[in-house]
C-alpha cells in the first residue's frame, strides 16, 4: 500500500467530514438553542441540492446554483419554523419526532411529485474540475479539495459568528437561559427563526456541494441526517466544536475503515473472505465508534456533564 493512497483517503475522509459538519452544525445549533430534534434537516439538504441542480441546469452557472441552494433552503427553513416548528418547542420529544417525520414525508413525496423519481445531475463547475497536484506529487480532484477548504472556512466563520458577534452572543445566551434573554429585550421568536434558517442554509449548501459529486435524488438527505446524528452524539449535543471534531472523526473512520479494514483482515484471512467481512464490519465502524464514545462519556466528547 502506497503512502499516496493513504494521503488520498485521508483527504477523502476530511472532505466527507467537513460536509457532515455543515449538516451537524445546524442540527446541534437548533438543538442547543431551541431544544428541538429536527428530523427534517435532511429534507433541507435535499431542497438545497434540488434548487442548485435546477438553477444550475437552467442558467449554466454553478455559482448561481449555490446561491439558489442557500436561499431556498433558508427560506424553506424559515417557513417550516414559522408554520410548524414554532409550536413544538415546548412539546415532548415524541411530538417533535413525529411532526418532523411528517415534514420529511411531505418534502420527499412533494419533491418526487414535482421533479419526478429520476435523479438530477449537477455538474462540477469548469474552473474547479480536473485534478490538482499536491506537494509530494499526489494528484487529487480540485473540486474535492475546494470542498475541504470551503468547509473549514465556514467552520471558522461560524465560530467567529457565534463567539464574536452580537447575534452570536444572543444565541449563546439563549442556550443558557431563554427567559432571561427574553426579559432583556431580545425578540426570541425572531432569533429562533434566524437560527433555524441559518441551520437550514448550511444544510442546503452541503446538499448542493455534495450533489455535484453524487446524484441529486429524493431521499438523499436521510442517510446524511443519520450520520449527522452520530456526529452530534459523539461530539456532544449543542457544541459546535464537538460537531466539528465529531464530523472529522466520523468522516475519517468511515472512509479509512472502508478502504483499509479489508486489507488489514487480508493479512490473516483469505482475500475473498477478508474483502467480504472487512466491508461488512467497516459499514458498522462509525456506530462502533459511537458506542465506544458513549461508554466512555455518555454526553459526548464536548457535551455538558449531566
Amino acid at each position: 500500500m502506497s503512502s499516496i493512497l493513504i494521503v488520498e483517503q485521508i483527504l477523502n475522509g476530511l472532505q466527507f467530514g467537513v460536509m457532515l459538519f455543515l449538516m451537524a452544525a445546524g442540527l446541534t445549533l437548533i438543538f442547543g438553542v431551541m431544544g428541538l430534534i429536527n428530523l427534517a434537516h435532511g429534507s433541507l439538504y435535499m431542497v438545497g441540492a434540488f434548487a442548485a441542480a435546477a438553477v444550475a441546469g437552467a442558467t449554466g452557472s454553478f455559482f448561481l446554483g449555490l446561491v439558489a441552494a442557500l436561499a431556498s433552503a433558508a427560506l424553506a427553513g424559515a417557513i417550516i419554523e414559522i408554520v410548524v416548528i414554532r409550536r413544538l418547542y415546548d412539546a415532548p420529544h415524541l411530538d417533535q419526532v413525529l411532526a418532523t417525520f411528517a415534514l420529511i414525508l411531505i418534502f420527499s413525496e412533494g419533491t418526487r411529485w414535482f421533479f419526478g423519481s429520476f435523479p438530477l445531475f449537477l455538474n462540477i463547475p469548469q474552473a474547479l474540475s480536473g485534478p490538482v497536484t499536491l506537494p509530494g506529487g499526489i494528484e487529487y480532484p480540485l473540486y474535492r479539495l475546494s470542498l475541504i477548504v470551503i468547509g473549514v472556512a465556514i467552520a471558522g466563520g461560524l465560530w467567529l459568528f457565534i463567539e464574536r458577534t452580537r447575534i452570536g452572543i444572543q444565541i449563546r445566551a439563549g442556550e443558557n437561559d431563554r427567559e432571561m434573554i427574553a426579559v432583556l429585550g431580545v425578540d426570541i421568536s425572531k432569533l429562533y427563526t434566524l437560527v433555524f434558517a441559518l441551520g437550514a442554509a448550511l444544510a442546503g449548501l452541503a446538499g448542493a456541494l455534495v450533489g455535484a459529486i453524487q446524484s441529486v435524488q429524493v431521499g438523499m438527505g436521510e442517510p446524511v441526517l443519520i450520520l449527522a446524528f452520530v456526529v452530534i452524539v459523539i461530539g456532544g449535543i449543542g457544541s459546535i466544536r464537538g460537531a466539528f471534531i465529531g464530523a472529522l472523526l466520523v468522516g475519517l473512520t468511515d472512509t479509512l475503515g472502508g478502504v483499509f479494514l479489508p486489507e488489514f483482515l487480508g493479512l490473516f484471512m483469505e482475500p475473498g473472505a477478508a474483502q467480504k467481512s472487512g466491508s461488512a464490519i467497516a459499514s458498522m465502524g462509525i456506530y462502533i465508534l459511537m458506542g465506544l464514545v458513549l461508554i466512555w462519556r455518555p454526553t459526548g466528547l464536548f457535551g455538558a456533564r449531566a
Binding site: 410548524v84 411530538d95 413525529l98 411532526a99 411528517a102 414525508l105 411531505i106 413525496e109 412533494g110 418526487r112
Partner: peptide
Amino acid sequence: YWHVYLGVVLLCIV
C-alpha cells in the same frame, strides 16, 4: 404520492 397526505394527517394529529 399518498405519503404526502399521510404527512399532513400526521402533522394535524401532532
